[in-house]
Amino acid sequence: MLEILITWIAAFFTLCIFSFLYKDNPIYKFAEHVFVGVSFGYGFVLQYYNVFLPNVWNRMPWEDGGSLFTLIPLILGLLMLTRIFPDIGWISRWPLAVMIGSYAGLQIIGNAQGDLIEQVRANFLPLWTDTFSETIGNWFLVFGTITTLVFFFFSKEHKGVIGHTARVGIWVLMISFGASFGYTVMARVSLLIGRLQFLLEDCLHLM
């Protein structure tokens, strides 16, 4: 019984969301507000069970296996909440500073390691290989990447040689975007088929 109820309510909300394709309407608005409320409620409960209970509550100094160190994030977290009171709200900048500093540092090394060096190394390609398609491809990769980098020059005006190279860079970018676009289309269509299957098969048993 419960299963059937879930299926029908799910079908109702599925149609509510699809109705947006016609235009913004009261039932879409209703579904949208329910979705926002339910999803954040779910996210909050998840944080409570996955972070707050295991990492804070169960690791308080008086708990078995707990430690005094747990008090530090607890205090920082509580300092964040001072924002609710305008007079002392500026204290919340301390935990913000801890987080922004740490994240900025981690992103510096993450970008240097993961993207910068990795991508430069990936472009050390031979310009002469056994197969014709690979040779042409490697030329495209090496010079395509460099022209794209020229497009990102900010301190020189895009005129003359730099201007022409940057223009080629834009073309490379557009070809690349076109490829990603075309590649994604089928994936998105299959998502739609999945939803239609739910309505026709699970709900109406038509298939």
């Binding site: 970008n111 240097a112 993961g114 993207d115 910068l116 991508q119 430069v120 990936a122 472009n123 042409i136 491809g137 490697n138 495209f140 990769l141 010079f143 395509g144 990447t145 460099i146 022209t147 794209t148 980098l149 497009f151 990102f152 860079g169 490379v172 970018l173 557009m174 070809i175 690349s176 975007f177 490829a179 990603s180 590649y183």
Partner: peptide, 16 residues
């Protein structure tokens, strides 16, 4: 494999 990656690589290096 090639043109698509060329654009992506340029963006990734610049963005990093």
């Amino acid at each position: 494999n090639y043109p698509n990656n060329a654009g992506k690589r340029g963006i990734k290096i610049g963005a990093s």
